[in-house]
C-alpha cells in the first residue's frame, strides 16, 4: 500500500540516506514534490487487483542465467582512467571513517 502522505522528516531521512545535503528551503520544496508524486501514484489503488499475483518483473520470463565461464577482465588503465583519483592500482577516495 502506498502511503498517501509523506512528512517533511521522511524527506530529510531519504535525503540523508542518499547522502544529499539539502537546505531547509529545498526540503520544503522536495516535500511538495514528493506529495504530488505519491498522490499521483495513489491513483493505482483504484485498480482492482483482487486475485492478481504480485510481480517482480514486467516480463513473463524466468531463469535467465549464464554458464559459469570466465571472460577477459577489463584493462586496469582504462578502468582507472575515468576515476577522479587513482594511483595506478586502486581508486582513491577520501579517507573512510572507521564507522561503516
Amino acid at each position: 500500500m502506498i502511503p498517501v502522505s509523506v512528512t517533511r522528516d521522511d524527506v530529510a531521512h531519504v535525503a540523508r540516506l542518499a547522502r544529499l545535503a539539502m537546505s531547509e528551503q529545498e526540503l520544503d520544496q522536495m516535500h511538495g514534490y514528493f506529495e504530488a508524486i505519491l498522490e499521483h501514484f495513489a491513483k493505482l489503488a483504484a485498480v482492482d487487483t483482487e486475485g492478481v499475483e504480485p510481480t517482480s518483473h514486467p516480463l513473463a520470463r524466468a531463469n535467465v542465467t549464464r554458464e559459469d565461464c570466465v571472460t577477459e577482465p577489463m584493462d586496469r588503465t582504462k578502468l582507472l582512467a575515468n576515476a577522479p583519483l587513482a594511483d595506478g592500482e586502486c581508486f582513491l577516495v577520501p579517507q573512510i571513517m572507521e564507522d561503516e
Binding site: 594511483d87 586502486c90 577516495v93 577520501p94
Partner: peptide, 8 residues
C-alpha cells in the same frame, strides 16, 4: 595508505 586517502 599514504596521505588522507583510502584505496579501493
Amino acid at each position: 595508505g599514504a596521505g588522507a586517502a583510502s584505496r579501493i
